[in-house]
C-alpha cells in the first residue's frame, strides 16, 4: 500500500515540510491534510519534494490549491527540489510559471515576513 512520510524542520525562518513517496490519487488525501496542518502554523512555508519521484495531476491540483490559499492569506510559499519529470508535467498543465521553485534548501534566502 502506497503512503507518504513527512519530516518537519526549520531552515532560516522557513517552516519546511519534506515529503517522501509518490503523490497520486491514492495518497493525495494525506498530502493535502499535511499541507492544511502546516498552513495553520506557518507564515513562510517551504515544501521540499526532493524525495518525491512521481506526482500525478491530483498532486498538482493540491499544489495549485495550496498556492491559492497561501496567496489569499499573504503567506510565503516555495517549492524545493521538484525533479525534471514533475516539472515537465507542470509545464504541460500550464502553471509552472506561477510557482517559486528552488533546487535545494541551500538556495533559500531568509523569507520576508
Amino acid at each position: 500500500m502506497s503512503s507518504l512520510s513527512f519530516l518537519e524542520k526549520t531552515y532560516l525562518n522557513w517552516s519546511v515540510l519534506s515529503v517522501d513517496g509518490q503523490i497520486d490519487s491514492k495518497t493525495v488525501g494525506e498530502f493535502k491534510e499535511a499541507l492544511d496542518q502546516k498552513l495553520l502554523t506557518s507564515k513562510c512555508l517551504a515544501i521540499d519534494l526532493t524525495l518525491v519521484r512521481f506526482m500525478s495531476s491530483a498532486g498538482l491540483r493540491a499544489l495549485l490549491v495550496l498556492h491559492h490559499q497561501t496567496s489569499s492569506q499573504g503567506l510565503s510559499l516555495v517549492f524545493v527540489g521538484i525533479n525534471e519529470d514533475i516539472q515537465d508535467v507542470m509545464r504541460v498543465t500550464g502553471f509552472h510559471q506561477h510557482f517559486t521553485l528552488v533546487s535545494s534548501l541551500d538556495e533559500l534566502q531568509p523569507a520576508v515576513q
Binding site: 490519487s25 500525478s56 495531476s57 491530483a58 491540483r61 508535467v89 504541460v92 498543465t93 500550464g94 502553471f95
Partner: peptide, 10 residues
C-alpha cells in the same frame, strides 16, 4: 493556452 488543465493521469 491559458485556462486548460490537461490531467496527465487520465
Amino acid at each position: 493556452e491559458k485556462m486548460r488543465f490537461v490531467d496527465t493521469d487520465t
